[in-house]
């Protein structure tokens, strides 16, 4: 029996302690934002926040998450009341197929918590582990910049102005 705190709710998981968090989220808890992309920790589609830091849930066993605070992007807001990072992505229409975007949002959230006024290089560095195949990179970066401004931080060296 493993106790997990996810989006502020405690869950008792009676399963394999080696099972990666992603399958627990999707199979047992009905939390679909984190996506299966590779199962190898290479693409970032499954990214969630663990103690505020980005973690690839496809390779993070639940046994490693006891006494940790897990947040998925369901915990950041809803379609009706999106969180500030989600709202910035909506405002920038920063999605094509959108499959990678929940992972992007989790990563951006972690970045802005740690560094509310990130440099362009810090932003790209933070987002680098996440892959997007539609080529939405420019919009994703615009959304991160917009979120940084909206959340009271800002941006250091705007390569592109926030639209």
């Amino acid at each position: 029996m493993i106790e997990l705190t996810i989006n502020g709710t405690r869950h008792r998981i009676d399963g394999d302690p080696a099972e990666p968090l992603l399958y627990v989220l999707r199979d047992d808890l009905g939390l679909y934002a984190a996506k299966f992309g590779c199962g190898l920790g290479q693409c970032g589609s499954c990214t969630v926040l663990v103690d505020g830091k980005p973690a690839q849930s496809c390779i993070t066993p639940i046994a490693a998450l006891e006494d940790r605070v897990v947040m998925t992007i369901e915990g950041l807001g809803s379609a009706r009341t999106p969180g500030p990072v989600q709202q910035a992505f909506i405002d920038e229409q920063a999605a094509q197929c959108g499959y990678c975007i929940p992972g992007m949002i989790a990563r951006a959230e972690a970045l802005l918590r740690a560094d509310p006024r990130p440099s362009e290089a810090a932003m790209r560095d933070a987002m680098r582990p996440s892959l997007c195949r539609c080529g939405t990179h420019m919009r994703i970066l615009r959304a991160v910049r917009r979120a940084a401004v909206a959340m009271g931080g800002g941006i250091v060296d705007p390569a592109e102005p926030v639209s």
Partner: peptide, 17 residues
């Protein structure tokens, strides 16, 4: 604004997956 974006960004079951 695209209708499909807010649900996709907040965890709705948006894909066949």
């Amino acid at each position: 604004p695209r209708r499909d974006i807010p649900p996709k960004l907040t965890g709705a079951a948006a894909y066949v997956q």
